[in-house]
Design a binder for these strands. Sequence first.
DNA 1: CGATAGGTTGAAAGTGATCAAACGCTGTGG
DNA 2: CCACAGCGTTTGATCACTTTCAACCTATCG
Lengths: 232, 232
Amino acid sequence: MQHRDLGLTPVHESQDDLCVARVPVFAKLPRATQLEIAGYARPRKLRAGEALYRQGDAIAQLFVVHTGTSKLTQSRADGEWLVRTVGPGEVVGEHAFLTGARPDDTVTALEDSQMCVFDHRDLGRIISAHPQVAIEMLRAVSTRLQRAERRITALAGTDAVTRLSDYLLGSPFARDGETAVVTLPMTKREVASYLGMTPESFSRALARLTKSGAIEVDGPRIRLLDPAKLTS
Amino acid sequence: MQHRDLGLTPVHESQDDLCVARVPVFAKLPRATQLEIAGYARPRKLRAGEALYRQGDAIAQLFVVHTGTSKLTQSRADGEWLVRTVGPGEVVGEHAFLTGARPDDTVTALEDSQMCVFDHRDLGRIISAHPQVAIEMLRAVSTRLQRAERRITALAGTDAVTRLSDYLLGSPFARDGETAVVTLPMTKREVASYLGMTPESFSRALARLTKSGAIEVDGPRIRLLDPAKLTS
DNA sequence: CGATAGGTTGAAAGTGATCAAACGCTGTGG
DNA sequence: CCACAGCGTTTGATCACTTTCAACCTATCG
């Protein structure tokens, strides 16, 4: 495994270093610790459309996203479902990394991406030496769990238009003058899958919100003309 | 069962000790470490129906369930939804514990229960001193996350009978001769909520599976007569 | 007992899925 | 430059399903 000489950081680490420093999980650590941790990381590049790993692969690695966004999907008898998307600073593969189990999801890059890769066998060493890392990872995973559990109750209890409204209100947005503009991260087909509906239903839900004057759709860009109408 | 008297154990520790030793998160630690951690824990007893905490409470504590089962629910505009149940050895409140944020769920005891309580302010100390605890907690949270994400795809994609079938096949069961018997952990109304359907639909789904000969229902007990029929 | 709560069953209504067709955009090859 | 193919998206019609509303049933409990 890589990572020798903890004291003397070689020049070629500069890229890993960037990765480690920019990511919330490691951001608060002292510089020296970041450099040490960078020693465990291997860089990995992905091109748009390329898979990071697939359901059932024998990998046991933690991936920290540096640049680019990817999608995490699960394949079932009834088709492929989008579980979530991951962007810079987020972490994937932690279940395999922590337990050694094979992943039951597939991660595919939506854009050209860069990641930091950590191996299962280094886990114990990193955490023993820097417990703060564990706390940050716990925070990250626990936050995702919270979001997932909230999404469960939303999927179980609300109709298509409400799910779409909640999704729009919860999405990152750009400002355009007074109004917020949400840009869909993927094709509408895939966003529909994320929201647990068919592309047709998604299209109809958008149409209904447009007719009510709540939003305005322009390709992947959605202007929230009247957020109050989305709260109903 | 565990917790025999190891001689040096102070009497007043016996209860906390029991708690710490029986729980997966702490089970693998050396005895001395367990005792030390037990020093941070406070016991807490709940009677059936009593709430451990409520959505929005200003608590920042980790609860480790020692005995009894509880339910974790989320209240939304459209009613109350069951998120999951927790039993001995499981952990609740970790999001509040880790981040200091207020919980957005409510935990209610289904039976008389005992818990160990850890305070947010002790978190750093425990984990710095015993990083192994952090790894175990990460494993636990990450496993729950995995389950939650799988449940999301199930809720999104399948019909009522399939969801019920999958639920039965995934539930812990007792053996009765050849056949497995699943006992519902709560009222059917609440299990229905867990599966994202109304009590009526739940009842009808049970009826259909009964008519097809796959199961036999006797109050909260469900005999899986023909598991193969549930796999369809 | 009557009352309450959980559970079941029936009929009606609503919603999303499915199937099918058409639109618009993009890239390709004649 | 244009015709065409392919894909994502939209729209319409139909169908299957779950929800809703209502009645009824059955235990438990004061």
